[in-house]
């Protein structure tokens, strides 16, 4: 395959450290590692508060990506991995994390993480990850009530967006903004399949569509696709979006417009919800383990 000269898909890797926290005083230091197909997050919680995290691109080797994410997160502090009391792995590569004490599914982790970051009023979560898209409903404790997951298909995923970014030669982080720099909202592209979308995009450009119009047509096709998924499980308030695409306003705003709801923006980063959830599960399991030990 021809290597792209410029890497339009490349998104910004994230780092965070809460300097107000002294990890030495913490009774519980837990780590959640979420290995997705596109990105990997390592999130450290101290006594149930976010202390630090790193979000990096997943490499070809899962254990290696997990180690790198943890290293990046801990590089910001003098906390060492041996100081961590409990580690939970999640995400599609979760079985390949050698240092995890336990694994939990990403569905449960996203619900838990969104509940923590967005508050107990969160009921519906749309997780738009690198290789799939899931609709989750949860209760006030962040426990899953219903979920819907799809076969592996790039349409409506971060990977699909990367393909579009490369195809249109637009940096992925600019797509959302550019997709609104248009006179009139164009109709969505007809193909949900990213492979067919390539042919369609070339056709549209030849017909005289601007780049921004094509991007808009894609974003709304992607939004429409996930809205149909969401409607199968139903959308209850409060609604939030997790995963990398949550940062793409081109898609999220169009989802909200179509659903006619508002969303809770997860802070500090919607991409770490799974990792936060995993770290919270780790805290529960640590507590349970300590109780059992007396």
């Amino acid at each position: 395959m021809v290597e792209e000269k410029k890497e339009y898909w490349r998104w910004t890797e994230g780092l965070y450290l809460n300097k107000d926290i002294d990890w030495r005083k913490a009774k519980s230091i837990t780590l959640g590692v979420d290995i997705g197909s596109v990105s990997t997050q390592a999130v450290v919680l101290t006594d149930g508060k976010i202390y630090c995290f790193a979000s990096i691109r997943t490499g070809s080797d899962s254990p290696d990506s997990a180690r790198k994410a943890v290293e990046s997160a801990l590089k910001q502090t003098d906390l060492k991995q041996e100081n961590i009391h409990y580690t939970v792995g999640t995400g599609y590569g979760r079985v390949n994390i050698p240092f995890a004490n336990k694994t939990v599914t990403e569905i449960a982790c996203h619900a838990r993480g969104a509940n923590y970051m967005g508050g107990p009023t969160i009921r519906t979560i749309l997780d738009m990850g690198g290789q799939d898209c899931k609709a989750i409903q949860c209760d006030e404790r962040g426990k899953v009530v219903q979920f819907l997951m799809n076969d592996k298909c790039a349409a409506g995923t971060g990977r699909g967006m990367e393909v579009i970014a490369n195809l249109m030669a637009v940096p992925i982080t600019d797509i959302g903004r550019l997709s609104f720099e248009i006179d009139k909202e164009p109709p969505p592209v007809s193909s949900t399949c990213v492979v067919f979308a390539k042919t369609e995009a070339i056709g549209l450009m030849r017909e005289g569509w601007t780049k921004n119009q094509v991007l808009a047509a894609y974003c709304s096709a992607m939004a429409h696709r996930v809205v149909t998924l969401l409607q199968r499980v139903g959308v209850n308030k409060d609604f939030t979006i997790t995963g990398g695409i949550a940062k793409n306003i081109g898609v999220t705003r169009r989802i909200l417009n179509e659903l006619k709801v508002d969303m809770v923006q997860l802070q500090p980063d919607p991409q770490i919800a799974g990792g936060v959830g995993a770290s919270l599960f780790a805290a529960d399991l640590l507590e349970k383990q300590r109780k059992a030990a007396g």
């Binding site: 426990k143 899953v144 009530v145 219903q146 979920f147 819907l148 997951m149 799809n150 076969d151 298909c153 949900t192 399949c193 696709r225 149909t228 998924l229 199968r232 499980v233």
Partner: peptide
């Protein structure tokens, strides 16, 4: 919970 696994095309 209710788990849905599948596909839409």
């Amino acid at each position: 919970y209710i788990a849905n696994y599948g596909y839409a095309d």
